[in-house]
């Protein structure tokens, strides 16, 4: 699966080898963990992105990109992933940046923890801060990366709904050609992205929110460190006491993390009320396509999605400077 998508997830906060309606969904009998890396491969550790792109071109189709390695190496130990070349981005220091001068720019290998700890992210990009703060375990937060979390394209990737709700874009480069696409266009299915062979995610950018913007991220898992059953992020832009803009994104309820555009327009130009929010929740529940798996049933995911969307909306509205919704 990863072979076609040269990318590695940075974490258990929405990863696992596969997830959600995937034909290769992990069953217990697949856990043939050998405790060593049985496959042989060559490790390439470029110091610049240009060198990484060149290696990727040279070894097209035979290489995977490694960011934090917390998911790639698990896949390789279990022999779900076999590859001839591993190109690690770990020594490219420029990719570790978290830049908040104007728009938020997150380099491909910025760790989950660096984003979670960034004071500007905590103040202005609350949904992302919350997704990163609640991400898996401390060790995975230190090792795992936001870029890897996106590129591994788990339907349950925790940073994805937050970044979708914050209207993020991803910047992809092949060393020859660069392109920027909306994150909402990035995911194609479980483990699948639009990254073509030879392309690397260089950074993620998030437009700076206005003062009257608020966002929130909420998730529910079985235990603290587990992958989410459902995750929700909401951004609201307020104009006086009315909703000027709204973005709602969910994880683990469809084949990719996705925005629910049908529900976003419901309250536009309106004053949010309890009944208005329940209508939004209902629209979300109608639009999602949850499945039943080891973590939850489809029915519970649908129920939970409605509850979390309502809670996240109220929280985002408060942060946008709106009051309690009655």
């Amino acid at each position: 699966m990863i072979g076609q998508h040269p990318a590695d997830l940075g974490g258990h906060g929405g990863g696992g080898p596969t997830e959600h309606a995937n034909p290769t969904e992990t069953q217990m009998e697949d856990f043939t963990n050998t405790h060593i890396l049985v496959g042989e491969f060559e490790l390439i550790e470029p110091h610049t992105l240009a060198q990484a792109s060149e290696s990727l071109r040279t070894h097209a189709g035979e290489a995977v990109i490694m960011a934090g390695g917390t998911d790639l190496l698990v896949g390789m130990k279990m022999e779900h992933i076999r590859t001839k070349y591993v190109i690690s981005l770990g020594r490219i220091s420029a990719l570790k940046r978290v830049d908040t001068n104007s728009d938020l720019v997150i380099g491909a290998t910025a760790s989950i923890r660096d984003v979670a700890h960034n004071s500007v992210v905590r103040q202005q990009y609350c949904a992302l801060a919350e997704a990163c703060q609640s991400f898996s375990t401390m060790q995975i937060m230190v090792m795992g990366t936001v870029g890897g979390n996106l590129c591994n394209a788990s339907p349950a990737a925790d940073t994805a709904p937050a970044l979708l709700a914050l209207d993020a874009s991803v910047h992809l480069t092949s060393g020859v050609r660069e392109r920027e696409i909306a994150l909402s266009e990035f995911f194609t299915g479980p483990g699948g992205t639009v990254l073509s062979d030879g392309e690397v995610l260089e950074h993620i950018s998030v437009p700076a929110p206005s003062l009257s913007t608020g966002s929130a991220f909420l998730k529910m898992g079985r235990v603290a460190a587990d992958i989410s059953k459902v995750s929700v992020a909401v951004t609201v832009v307020r104009s006086e006491d009315r909703v000027r803009q709204c973005r709602i994104a969910l994880g683990a309820v469809a084949s990719t993390p996705r925005r629910i555009v049908a529900a976003e327009s419901e309250l536009l130009g309106e004053k949010p009320t309890i009944s208005g929010i329940s209508k939004v929740s209902q629209l979300v529940q109608q639009a999602i396509e949850p499945i039943t798996d080891v973590r939850s049933t489809a029915a519970y995911r649908r129920h939970l999605a409605g509850v979390l969307v309502g809670d996240a909306f109220r929280q985002a509205w408060l942060r946008a400077g709106g009051g309690e919704i009655t």
Partner: peptide
């Protein structure tokens, strides 16, 4: 566990807690 779930292999790399079973 060997898959980053249990923390028993934790060491500090440059002061940061890291799972040494998932570090090349």
């Amino acid at each position: 566990c060997g898959i980053g779930e249990c923390g028993a292999c934790t060491v500090l790399v440059d002061g940061q807690p890291s799972l040494s079973c998932l570090v090349l």
